[in-house]
């Protein structure tokens, strides 16, 4: 999924870098509200989690396996602003310490995965949560799953749009859209199902940690039971 150097021309790379810098600057201010002064240590550890989760392969069949992108998962778990920062840091470390993803394409990759990937998933989740408010916390994993599924083809479409602007090869646009959408809808199914299951397992043990479930999960008041229970 990482865009390498030379895929898009220099003006497009610079323009997406400016866009990414703006988004990250905004996120730096807003993430404080999600995590207060714990931002740096917690966001750092969540970034490690995203990095490690991308290493978890799940078998797709026929000997191939996919891996999680984690944008929507992170947004639902820790909030979209912090998720943007985490994905940014993960992409920067991958580019600078692991030579994965282009250096000049870092802005493009942050724009695609950190901004479009996180925010399309988060907006979709917010809309679903508003529509299905009555369903309560039980619906959170399913909503996160649907949002994660949708975020993958949306990100692919954003990439296609960038390619139409700054691509260096005359590939027919419709063919590229069809190929990218088809392929990424499949990838999105894996992303959606794994996100659903992962959020489900976290909600079962620590519902208080899931940012997207705040206000939905009814806090259970402390019960003091007297007398021996049968």
């Amino acid at each position: 999924m990482h865009v390498p150097d030379g895929f898009l021309d220099a003006p497009t790379s610079v323009a997406t870098a400016v866009l990414a810098a703006g988004g990250v600057a905004l996120a730096l201010g807003r993430a404080r509200r999600e995590l207060d002064d714990r931002t740096a240590p917690l966001a750092g550890l969540v970034a490690v989690f995203v990095f490690a989760a991308q290493m978890l392969n799940f078998p797709v069949g026929a000997g191939t396996s996919g891996h999680l992108l984690g944008g929507t998962l992170a947004a639902v778990l820790v909030g979209p602003w912090t998720a943007t920062l985490c994905l940014t840091v993960v992409l920067a470390v991958q580019a600078l310490l692991f030579a994965d993803g282009g250096i000049t394409a870092l802005g493009t990759n942050i724009t695609l995965m950190g901004l479009v990937g996180v925010w399309s998933g988060w907006l979709c989740y917010v809309v679903l949560r508003r529509v299905l408010r009555s369903a309560g916390p039980a619906a959170v994993p399913a909503m996160a799953g649907v949002a994660a599924f949708l975020s993958v083809p949306v990100t692919a479409l954003a990439f296609t749009a960038l390619y139409a602007v700054g691509g260096r090869v005359p590939i027919p646009f419709e063919a590229l859209v069809t190929a990218m959408l088809g392929w990424h809808t499949l990838i999105g199914v894996g992303e959606g199902v794994i996100t659903l299951l992962a959020v489900g397992s976290i909600i079962a043990t620590r519902p208080d940690l899931v940012h997207g479930a705040r206000g939905l999960a009814t806090a259970r008041p402390l019960e003091i039971r007297t007398g021996a229970s049968a």
Binding site: P41, F49, A53, L77, I194, V199, G200
Partner: peptide, 29 residues
């Protein structure tokens, strides 16, 4: 991990890893 049936296990591992990372973050802080 051989088929789609292993997905719940992989996802539960991811969930457990998140909780452990987050709690480690709290302790570090």
């Amino acid at each position: 991990p051989r088929s789609v049936r292993s997905w719940p296990v992989v996802a539960a591992s991811a969930g457990a890893l998140f909780i452990r990372s987050y709690e480690r973050g709290e302790r570090v802080h």
